[in-house]
Each structure stands twice: as structure tokens, then as C-alpha cells.
Design a protein around this nucleic acid. Sequence first.
DNA 1: AAGGATCTCAACCGCGACGGG
DNA 2: TCCCGTCGCGGTTGAGATCCT
Length: 190
Amino acid sequence: MDKSPCNSQDVEVRKGPWTLEEDLILTNYIANHGEGVWNSLAKAAGLKRTGKSCRLRWLNYLRPDLRRGNITPEEQLLIMELHAKLGNRWSKIAKHLPGRTDNEIKNYWRTRIKKHTKQTEPFAAGSSETNEHGSSTCQVSSATDQMETYCPPLYQGDVGAFSGGNIPQELNENYWSMEDLWSMQLLNGD
DNA sequence: AAGGATCTCAACCGCGACGGG
DNA sequence: TCCCGTCGCGGTTGAGATCCT
């Protein structure tokens, strides 16, 4: 469909970083006409971008109600809490954090977890055999999975910690308890 | 001061859901 | 009911910035 950039009739599609001029065009257009069907918006605004790209740029960068800058400790806690409940449903999590985007939260989470995983790697390596028989609540199938649904090794095999039975089954399988989150707070140290 | 390693974040990609014709 | 266009989401990548040795 859009895979033929040489097609003479199709306007060539720009990719990569947005220029200031493009930002201005998009912002002005939306200010005047509002958000709409993104594909036609891109064309109507005269941008050589896909509607998808315009949408992303607007939602993640240009929207006037965006809060840019450091995630506050309160927001951090909320993110952790919501991630424990919702998993990687970044857009859902973002809805609870006015002014923050799913992309921002996703990036924030991943870098945090990456850091945390590194910090605890020696432990994880040492206790890796615990996962072999699937005896813990964590289903680690790869390094990536470990990052996404990481369980602090201290709790591995210690399912009894959840014996209160308050954790819904589908959550119990992949996500952290609040205790985990609080302990991570301490590890982060900020 | 230089070079390498690591981190951060904007942007792209692929897929599934949804709605209209 | 099927097909097509569009949207929204989650995962991934790459470039620039920053830190470390």
C-alpha cells in the first residue's frame, strides 16, 4: 500500500526526527481545526508524514497539557502501583497520570527496571535454578521477559508471602505485590 | 582531554480492534 | 458477512546526551 515511495503520485513520506517547522504546522493546524482523522489531517496540513506519525508527535510531544520533566516520587509510586495492577497497559496507566504519556511512562519504567535488574543480576544468576521447575510466581522465559515481569529474587519461591490470597490469580502470575514495589522503592533510593 | 560505556527519549513498526460501506 | 481504512497500543530501535575510566 504505502510501501512504494517511488510511486510518482504518492507524496513522499518523511521519517525521522520532526523539524521545528513541522511541529509548528501541526500545532497550528490542530489549533485551528482540532484533532480529526489523522491521515487526512496530515494531508490537509501539508505534512509529508503519515497520520500515525502526526498522532504520535502530537500526543507525545506537542500537546499543550503535557507535563514534561522529572517524574515525581508520587507519580513513581502511582506508576508502580498501577503497573502491579494493570501490567504493561501503559495507556491505561497514563490515564491516571494527567499530562504524562504512555510512551513516557513506558520509557521510564523500562529504564528503571533495567537498572534494577542489573543491580540484582548476581542474585538472579545465583537463584536461576529456582525458575527451572516453575516453582515461583515468576515465569521467566528470557532476559526480556525477566525485565518485563521481573520478580525480586528475594521473593522467588517464597509464594507464602502472598498467602493472604488477596492477589487475583491473573495478577499473581506475573506481577508484583505492593511489598515488592515498596522494597524496590528502597532500592531505588530516591 | 579522549574514548568508550551507559542512559534517555523520540520515533518507528507490527498487530489487533473497531467501524463503515 | 466480508473487506478495507483508521486508530490505538505495546514493543523495539537508534541517535544524542551524559557519565566514567
